[in-house]
Design a protein around this nucleic acid. Sequence first.
RNA 1: CAGUCGGGCCGGACGGCCGCUCGCUACGCUUCAUCGCGCAGAGAGAGGAAAGUCCGAACUCCGCAGAGCAGUGUGCCGGAUAACGUCCGGGCGGCUGAUGUGAAGAUCAGCUGACGGAAGUGCCACAGAAAACAUACCGCCCCAGGUUGGCUUAAGACCCUUUUGCUUUGCGGAAGGGUUUUGGGUGGUUUGGGGUAAGGGUGAAAAGGUGCGGUAAGAGCGCACCGCCGUCUCAGUAAUGAGGCGGGCAGGGAAAACCCCACACGGAGCAAGACCAAAUAGGGAGGGAGCUUCGGCUUCUGCCGGGGCGCGUGCUGGCUCGGUGCGCUAAACCUUCGGGUAGGUCGCUAGAGCCAUGCAGUAAUGCGUGGCCCAGAGGAAUGGUCGUCCUGCUGGCAACAGCAGACAGAAUUCGGCUUAUAUGGUCCGGCUGCCUC
RNA 2: GUGAGUGUAGCUCAGUUGGCAGAGCACCGGGUUGUGGCCUCGGUGGUCGAGGGUUCAAGUCCCUUCACUCACC
Length: 126
Amino acid sequence: MQGFPKSQRLLRHSDFRKVYSEGRRHFGPHMTVFYRTRKEAPSASWRVGFTVGKVLGGAVARNRIKRRLREAVRLSVQSRLGGADVVIHPKRSVLESDFSALRSEIERAFEAIERCLEKEKLTKPR
RNA sequence: CAGUCGGGCCGGACGGCCGCUCGCUACGCUUCAUCGCGCAGAGAGAGGAAAGUCCGAACUCCGCAGAGCAGUGUGCCGGAUAACGUCCGGGCGGCUGAUGUGAAGAUCAGCUGACGGAAGUGCCACAGAAAACAUACCGCCCCAGGUUGGCUUAAGACCCUUUUGCUUUGCGGAAGGGUUUUGGGUGGUUUGGGGUAAGGGUGAAAAGGUGCGGUAAGAGCGCACCGCCGUCUCAGUAAUGAGGCGGGCAGGGAAAACCCCACACGGAGCAAGACCAAAUAGGGAGGGAGCUUCGGCUUCUGCCGGGGCGCGUGCUGGCUCGGUGCGCUAAACCUUCGGGUAGGUCGCUAGAGCCAUGCAGUAAUGCGUGGCCCAGAGGAAUGGUCGUCCUGCUGGCAACAGCAGACAGAAUUCGGCUUAUAUGGUCCGGCUGCCUC
RNA sequence: GUGAGUGUAGCUCAGUUGGCAGAGCACCGGGUUGUGGCCUCGGUGGUCGAGGGUUCAAGUCCCUUCACUCACC
């Protein structure tokens, strides 16, 4: 995938709340990923949001974390899974770690999400 | 040249590929048309502090008869400015350095200062005689008295020693020594009266400073220089300064204790505020069986009275003892209205703007001319990666390799202040040291 | 955006007309006990968040700054 426009970002507070209350989690060394299916629009494309709190540093550090994560998601995610909302909670190590490591971790996380959601889709309609 | 202090400016440079946000242009889808969505092109896209939120304004809404009090802030003078607690210039004080002096005062340069007022209330621990209407204490000096077993002196008396004369158990003279009485001087001690404020270990601070004279002792008591107060003249817009005259001299610190004086200040803040507006809940209004004919009133809509036809006892409760009552009312239902939440749009970037330059002004700054458009997000864009170069450090003879490049991210917009910034770079000024002419 | 508060010993906190830096727990040593605890006696321990200023003198007064906490729209 090439672009990462704003329509594929998770921007609303209510969307974040839905992901936290209804979703599942996946843990990695640099981040924690929350995700859920979009029941109201299953055919739409996936969306990703980032939560970077004040604990992670000043405005410069927070901006840098968000930008690196956004770029890693843009370059890494190849999947065509539809109707998923994903929220990424990064850790402080994102600021210093290698960019390739960030990419591989995000790839792994999305593969896991894809497997899980496929299973849900298969089991639910019955 | 090096070091140090103060200030100004800069805040790594260029490029390839792939992305993000914004507005512009063109095309496609949708639509009556906008709007919206997609895609392409050429553009733009963090700072000197964007930070802290310490001041001041613009802008918006609310409030507002006038005056006073309270509260908060500011505080040498003049100017700049939209305004300011900011800036510029000046004055005065402090510190440092140099010149100079016996020492001060003085002159020059740099840095620096919350720099109105000590009238009122309160405070100044410890130490110290005394800490704020100054005088009490010690001390110094004078006078008077008492006392003294000190020293000295005069006179008298007595005793001893030596010597000498005579009338020789004695008497007299001279010298020396001792004891004692009286008087004087001086000193000690003490009492009373008076004169003083020079001195008194202290303390942060002690009622002008230094020197000479003067005095019983002292003292601005007198004098010289310096400081201080008052007044006059001159210079200056003023703060203030200079000079003359007069006065021997008032007066501690602290107002960043309360306070007094002068001046300023309505409150809230872009989450201000304006518009559009779902779902849910609640509020207001209306609805339910009327239709038709005749007469009257009326500009019309419509209202009143009489007659005819039709439906129904409406799914509930209350208003009349019961019934009737095309009566009222509540709930439910339906329609509709406005407020308003989520959400969206505007406010939102052309401005006390930037660049160049001329004139006025010591300067801050003002006036003019020409050119330019320079971020506008909203869970919040300005990025990722690669390459070349620059600066510094490390390793290496070198080529080169590795590492590092700070502080920090617009959020309504400006003017300031403060703080953070690489063994950073560069420029200017002061001081010190060394070298050369 | 606006407003308020806190910072003192290892921990929890006192400290006002500005003049000695304190309490409890903890720690160390002695006593008590066969040993330990409890108890008792004594002691160590402070850049008063940081930097300036006012003052003779600052934990205290003033200014700047840092960190943390809370409240409101």
